[in-house]
Amino acid sequence: MASLAGMLTARRGRGAFDWTDWFSYGYLALGLLLMFGPVVWLVLSSFKSAAALNEFPPQLLPYGQKTVVVTGHEIPLPLYRVTLPDGTTRELAEVRRIGIQATLVDPKAPEQEYKVNIRDRKPVREFQLALNNYIEIFGKFSFGTFLWNSVFITVVATLITLLFNAMAAFALSKYRFGGRNAVFLLIISTLMIPPTIILVPNFLVVSELGLLNSLWGVIWPAVATPTGVFLLRQYMLTIPDELIEAARMDNASEWRIFWRIILPLSAPALAVLAIFSVMWRWNDFLWPLIVLSRTEKFTLQLALNAFQGELTTQWHYLLAMTVITLLPVTLVFAFLQRHITTGIAAAGVK
């Protein structure tokens, strides 16, 4: 009991490596497996050919059948390990197959043909990445359009979010105007109004504005984030007022003070908000699902959702699309993990 509690309270393990340390590392190893395992499995699977994906039980790594180029044949032939009637085994290339009878040749001596029962041959396999999964989705499913839609929404919405939120935060942190506190409370209070409870009326507003099936119908409702205003306001409060006064003495207009002094100085907070905003918009699902019903306006998330209904027999495409969708977020995470985690810990928002 005592050592269990030791694990629960110790900020810094000291002394010998006791069982609480074993527990900790065991827990972390299990966590690693559970948290990363499925993602790694998804990525590995996405490089498998359709045939390899249909195998059960599945192989860990992507394997494909080895092929050889044989003179006299235009396309490479699949290679098999064949048990010949005399009991010897040889690696032969299959020329054709009729029923249970396969015709194979020795790649080095293609003149002589061997006819064997298909049960007597086993495919020769090698490590092989099915990159075609990735190439074909762009041609077959106008995947590029979905990617473009997602990128457009993410980039444009993030830029507008940064600008609008920074402007509001500037006004709320650096001016004493009548109604300031009311405005601040009004903005913060929208934290308590999740979009899920105003889906129907928002649909009306967006449709009245003619924004149904327009990417702007996803962008505009999302840009006035209270989280962003709050985050930036807190940061701007730490910028000394004297800088603004100095700029006023320097004949700068208020807009120029905002643009040349406040924005550059808020860069760290803007970066955190930018990361958040990119994640929010890239991952958005329910609202785009309602606003965008035409296939050519789908975002990646919508396309994935649509295909997972239609393409369950074509997992190799679906997996490749999923990997592309999680790639940007993973890259952002890999390079900016520290910013994200400290930003979240500081703001208490996701």
Binding site: E242, L243, E245, A246, D250
Partner: peptide
């Protein structure tokens, strides 16, 4: 402030 033609040196210097 800008149009009075004065210049001010602040306590914290207020350098950008």
């Amino acid at each position: 402030a800008a149009q009075r033609g004065l210049a001010m040196v602040f306590q914290s210097y207020a350098l950008y």
